[in-house]
Design a protein around this nucleic acid. Structure first.
Lengths: 303, 303
DNA sequence: TAGATTGTTAATCGATTAACAATC
DNA sequence: TAGATTGTTAATCGATTAACAATC
């Protein structure tokens, strides 16, 4: 049954393989265009029509995934914005909003409405013309797309100030990220209890990853230790790393590294600030009296 | 003297305004193509030829900036990578490397060498064909471009785990970012000493910003407080904000907001992880025995 | 000079956006 | 039906990259 909708692979082959299309809209109803997810057509949650948001979504849908097919169909820029939409939708949900237009949702997420519609169109046709998007339904579809309908075990390596902040950050657990381990190389820190977990020694890194099915590792160590930690975790099969250490990690093919660099963000701000202000916050000299808006400023003390 | 090189404004007007060009290379020697910085041509540091890297760079160059002119000439994507190059160059500098090729520097920064050369060409022609780039000279040019040759006063609002981590982060001070104030609304935190600073009450926010010439504000408050803090600091003229709170800030025109969202990074990793693994880390069912690579998986407990 | 490497070109790729036909 | 709003198109814009002439 699931394979009945399987289309030949290759660029844009999905629509062509369907028995009919109108203006590019697939007529293969249960297989949402632009998705790889083959949805059970008899299920009450499947659109259009019978969706009832009163029943917990997690217990209703059976999906059959054809791996690695349309995934390339979702642009990176779109993936990076889906969490923004999800957050905006959750805000609407808390205020009991049932439907939302692309215009309003885009405003809440801080993006252009055309961009929002384009992004959502990569997931499928989940809106209703003339009405908007069902908030609960869209929350579910985006969550599923991002993999947030399952639980992800995360290990944090390096329990300094930043590691502690991450361990205590409430935004993880609410999105399906479960801190499954805190590890540090410093014996003075090992044994501390943080956010309900006992800090373990990094000697146990491989064991923790294997025993607790950790799939995402957060590196919050000093720069000098980061590559070594990275090597160890990729060696035991971890393929997703969030790196806070200010180094470029070398990883095997197939490993995703995302990097958060606090000082880089400040440097980008400084670049723009330098240009907005005609001189900057610390200006020893006044403007010269010339007609041109020229900033004469000596760098450093002498000269 | 500074205004002698001022070119008419407008797209690509700089090269056209020069007395002569060869293949797009400006013959206006002291005005490096693609920069707005009018360099003193008689200064020994000015290229080509007389550059001697043995003298501290900060004490040698006098620049005259023509505000807001070529700044639009540096693409955002390039600006975001300059800090990466700077970090890689500092690494080379520590190992006493004098020159570096675009190939090697690109490898150290984790980018394509053509991209690196393209990026650097936006700053000027600071390399030497057949040789490479002088490490010290390039460090100085990138630092100047990013505004790191001056001191920036930063205030951190919200001294929870994250605020403390930021206050203690060594990567700021080394790049010219000086923490000038730590503020929190919680009386239990006010008065604490962190990273050599005493935490002040947010009541003093406007005073601290004005008295200490704060130009960059880091918001590390809970989400609910972020917009209010943002409103207050923009009202007194702050135009650069680094926001860690998980909200979209509304700001007046001309204010730059950069956002660091820890959970968004994890969500993007989860998206890719879900696709790499054919199912994910928590897999209750086995693959069905069919010929197709179909993943049958129920979401949640029932069904 | 010969070898090496930059800075630029031009092709390609991906992202953004306004406009609007489709359609609820 | 009339009004509203989606999903798509197509134009534009910006970023990436290989290739190579320029030139040290």
């Amino acid at each position: 049954m699931a394979t009945a909708y399987a289309a030949p692979r290759g660029p844009d082959s999905r629509a062509a393989a369907c028995p009919g299309t109108v203006n590019g809209h697939s007529l293969c109803a249960p297989l949402h265009k632009g998705t790889n997810l083959d949805v059970n057509p008899s299920h009450p949650l499947v659109r259009p029509g019978a969706y009832r948001p009163s029943v917990p979504l997690e217990h209703r849908l059976v999906t059959r995934r054809i791996p690695q097919a349309r995934d390339r169909g979702i642009p990176d820029a779109t993936v990076a914005r889906l969490p923004l939409y999800l957050r905006a939708l959750n805000g609407l949900s808390e205020r009991a909003t049932l439907t939302v237009s692309s215009e309003d949702l885009a405003a809440a997420a801080g993006v252009n409405s055309a961009k929002l519609r384009k992004d959502l169109s990569h997931l499928g046709s989940y809106g209703t013309r003339g009405v908007g998007y069902d908030v609960q339904y869209l929350i579910y579809q985006i969550s599923r797309e991002l993999g947030l309908t399952q639980d992800w075990a995360v290990a944090i390596v390096g329990v300094g100030n930043l590691g502690r902040a991450l361990a205590n950050y409430g935004g993880f657990a609410s999105r399906g990220f479960r801190i499954a381990g805190l590890l540090d190389a410093d014996p003075a820190v090992v044994g501390d209890q943080i956010a309900g977990l006992v800090v373990e020694h990094t000697d146990a890194l491989e064991t923790v990853i294997a025993d607790r099915s950790v799939s995402i590792v957060v590196i919050a160590t000093p720069a000098a230790a980061a590559q070594h930690v990275c090597d160890r975790v990729t060696a035991v099969g971890v393929t997703s790393i969030l790196n806070f250490a200010p180094v470029v990690l070398n990883v095997p093919d197939g490993v995703d590294v995302r990097k958060v660099d606090l000082s880089i963000e400040l440097q980008i701000l400084a670049f723009h600030e330098q240009r907005k202000a005609s001189g900057g916050p610390i200006m020893a000299e006044e403007w010269p009296d010339g007609v041109e808006p020229v900033n004469e400023r000596s760098i450093g003390a002498s000269s």
